[in-house]
């Protein structure tokens, strides 16, 4: 019988994978956050109801997340535009297919981040650490001007630089 510690151990290990999976299937970040919470609830319940041992927690959790995404999409259909069901299915399959390559890219990215200069790290931290309004205030952008107007060019440059670094590392086999 699986124990609660087993669940916590598995969940801690794969939480980010499941979150990345969800994030790939929904275009709205807040939806992904809410879906993760719903998925976590379902995982907790179903983990102890499983009649057979769960051989791959990650695959099992992503499958449950997939159904949560479809259910969520249906429930939010009138509120905002999401990806269509066939695109969600195709993305989920593509994610499984490219799983190893994506992992490899993440490892390369970690090395690339180590090479970033401090102002670029600060920029990314500003982007990801605080809310848009506060970013606007923190970057002296004119009042009311959206975050992207003040920062998008610099962000784009850093993102492209990182993407280029990742490609280079993958091509050169230096992770």
């Amino acid at each position: 019988m699986p124990t609660e510690l087993d669940f916590v151990s598995e969940y801690s290990r794969w939480e980010n994978e499941v979150y990345r999976f969800i994030l790939s299937l929904v275009p709205h970040r807040p939806d992904a956050d809410e879906l993760m919470q719903e998925t976590a609830k379902t995982l907790w319940t179903k983990y102890f109801q499983a009649e057979e041992p769960i051989r791959s927690f990650k695959a099992w959790a992503c499958q449950i997340a997939f159904y949560e995404v479809l259910r969520y999409r249906k429930s939010k259909a009138r509120e905002r535009l999401n990806f269509s069901q066939d695109v969600i299915e195709q993305l989920a399959n593509a994610r499984r297919q490219h799983d190893d390559a994506l992992t490899e890219r993440r490892v390369a990215l970690q090395a690339c981040l180590q090479e970033l200069k401090w102002p670029d790290i600060e920029l990314l931290r500003t982007r990801y650490g605080i809310t848009p309004d506060e970013v606007s205030a923190a970057t002296d952008s004119p009042a009311g001007q959206p975050i992207t107007n003040a920062m998008s060019k610099r962000l784009q440059r850093v993102r492209r630089m990182l993407a280029h670094c990742v490609e280079k590392r993958i091509a050169g086999g230096t992770l």
Binding site: L23, R95, L102, L124, G129, T131, E134, R159, L162
Partner: peptide, 28 residues
């Protein structure tokens, strides 16, 4: 390409600022 982009942005976020350190928005 889209998955690579999403994955990369999430990893940047996780590494740089912590994926869970975003400020609250109305939905959360």
């Amino acid at each position: 390409q889209y998955l690579e982009f999403v994955d990369m942005q999430h990893e940047i976020e996780r590494q740089i600022a912590g994926v869970f350190s975003r400020g609250p928005d109305s939905r959360t």
